[in-house]
Every structure is written in structure tokens, then in C-alpha cells.
């Protein structure tokens, strides 16, 4: 099975670990992620002003690329890209006036009316692979690994693009359980890490990150699973500062959900690029004998 795939800029640099494990793991599950032949940055955040269509151009162009490829589905992995593309798609589907204005402005592009469906990889696995098939494909169950899911903001808000309604969301939980890991209830699963404010208001963003990581840590999680490179930067790569300056009591490794998948499917751990992760992620998995120890 082939499906159109939008990577997003960060997955090509800082989050290669997210992309490579997704492509590798999905191949094992019989799915080929076909990258759009030509794509641009989606804009990462959505315009929230009704008179600002300019910032809708980028995500709509990407949707047009998917339509040109003859796809009715576009899979994304990065939470921010998912949110931005999904919201732009709804606008093109539901608002005739703005759709016409955007189509008229992009006179060099074919018209678009929301024909493509934007799907986050977690939902794609739920719907197109299924939990039973996923369970059956697991070669190295993550037995005993206590994993807390972290949805963050952009997978569940606003409600119209939520991968599952936030209060009842179970897709991440079922995914973790299907891999044989021990699910840890995470009271901060939908909290905000401070997002892009890490650049302009780092103190406040790090405080928000420390608080939400503490919630998962207090529930006894070994590792926090996530799907957003920006969350991983705030929560994982900046974690030493959270411990030093923001009252986080002890460290909590972070991992992309696709890396958990790759490990559980028994893929070569070099695919996981753990060098791009939180410093404790690789050693945690080594301690639990989930990946073999390699000389760094």
C-alpha cells in the first residue's frame, strides 16, 4: 500500500530520527510513504485572523501538491504540520468565499477545494494497519517499559482537527499498548510545552515544559512518547535546564512514537538516530535490553 506523505522541514534535519523510523517501520507494516515530489514549509502555525489568507497559502500549496499526485490522503507525522495542513484543508472545504479568494490569488496553481484528507500517522496506523496487525508484527515487545503518551496541543486542538476528541483520546494509549509497553496515565498529556515561545520567552516556555514533564514523571513513567519535534526540543533537548532552573526533580527521557515502533518491530537501532534524542533515551532502552549496546 502506498500513501502520499508530507515530511515537514524539521524531519529532514533535527528530527531525522522521527522520519527514518516512520518510513522504516511503515515499510515493515506493508506501507510505503511516498514523499510529495515538491513541497514547501507548511508554516508550522495557522493564521487565526479571518482577514489573513496570506498565511494560508503555504499549507494549501502542499495540499495541491498531494492532489496533483492523484492522492486522496496525505499522511503527516509532525504534529505542527498536521495541525496546519488539516486546518487549511478545512478552510478550503468549508469556506467558499475564502477558498475562491485563495484559488484566484494562486493563479499559477490548479484550483483546490479540500479534496485531500490530511491524516496523522497515529490515526493512519489505527485505521489502515489496525491494532491487531500491529500487535502481530511486534518482534521485540516493549515489556516493562513504562511509557507516558504526550499528545501536546496540536494533535487535539482545536476540536475540528483533533485526531481524537481530547477528553476521550485513546489512539496514543492503544498504540503504546499494542507495542507491549506498560501504559502510564499522563495527566499532562494535553498540556502545552510553550511551543515557539521557547525562542522569544524561553523562561516561560521552560516553566510550562517542566510542569508537564513533572506530571508524567510523578506517575512513574520511564519515558515520554511524543510526535512533535518542537515539543521534543522543549521537553527533551532543553531538559537539563528544566532540572537545573525550573524545579523538575529528575530527568525523563523523551522518544518519538515512531522510534518506539521501530524498536518494537525489531528494526536496526541505527535507524533510530538516538544521538538526536534526549541523552537518556538510548541508555534507557539499552538497560531494558530493548536495543543492543553499541559503542558511541
Amino acid at each position: 500500500m502506498k500513501v502520499s506523505y508530507y515530511p515537514g522541514c524539521t524531519l529532514k534535519t533535527k528530527a531525522r530520527n522521527l522520519e527514518d523510523t516512520a518510513i522504516g517501520a511503515l515499510a515493515v507494516l506493508g506501507v510505503e510513504l511516498v514523499e510529495l515530489p515538491r513541497w514547501n514549509c507548511c508554516g508550522a502555525v495557522t493564521s487565526l485572523a479571518q482577514d489573513d489568507l496570506l498565511h494560508m497559502l503555504a499549507p494549501v500549496r502542499d495540499l495541491i501538491r498531494a492532489k496533483e499526485q492523484g492522492s486522496d490522503k496525505l499522511v503527516t507525522i509532525c504534529s505542527m504540520c498536521y495541525n496546519t495542513l488539516a486546518r487549511a484543508n478545512l478552510l478550503m472545504r468549508n469556506d467558499a468565499e475564502k477558498r475562491d479568494a485563495l484559488n484566484r490569488f494562486m493563479d499559477e496553481e490548479p484550483d483546490y477545494a479540500g479534496e485531500v484528507e490530511v491524516i496523522h500517522l497515529l490515526n493512519f496506523i489505527r485505521d489502515e494497519v489496525g491494532w491487531d496487525k500491529l500487535r502481530a508484527a511486534v518482534r521485540r515487545p516493549l515489556t516493562g517499559l513504562r511509557v507516558a503518551p504526550y499528545y501536546g496541543c496540536t494533535l487535539v486542538r482545536p476540536a475540528e482537527v483533533a485526531i481524537e476528541p481530547a477528553v476521550d483520546a485513546t489512539v496514543f494509549e492503544k498504540f503504546i499498548e499494542a507495542l507491549g509497553a506498560q501504559l502510564v496515565h499522563n495527566p499532562g498529556a494535553f498540556d502545552c510545552c510553550g511551543s515557539y515561545q521557547i525562542l522569544s520567552h524561553p523562561k516561560q516556555a521552560l516553566a510550562a515544559s517542566a510542569e508537564l514533564l513533572g506530571k508524567a514523571k510523578n506517575k512513574g513513567a520511564d519515558v515520554l512518547a511524543l510526535s512533535c519535534p518542537l515539543c521534543d526540543y522543549n521537553l527533551g533537548k532543553r531538559q537539563n535546564e528544566l532540572v537545573a532552573d525550573h524545579g523538575l526533580e529528575s530527568k525523563l527521557p523523551t522518544i518519538y512514537f515512531t522510534q518506539l515502533l521501530a524498536v518494537a518491530l525489531g528494526l536496526d537501532s541505527s535507524l533510530c538516530h538516538f544521538e538526536l534524542n534526549h541523552e537518556g533515551t538510548r541508555s534507557l532502552l539499552e538497560e531494558r535490553n530493548l536495543i543492543s549496546t553499541v559503542a558511541v
Binding site: S47, L199, L230
Partner: peptide, 15 residues
Amino acid sequence: DEAPQAAMVGCFRKL
């Protein structure tokens, strides 16, 4: 050097 591109794009778009 370390921040993901998404952080820069989001920050500059909003601010």
C-alpha cells in the same frame, strides 16, 4: 543551531 525549524517559523509568523 539547536532549535527545530518549526520553532523559528512559528515564532516569526506570530511575532
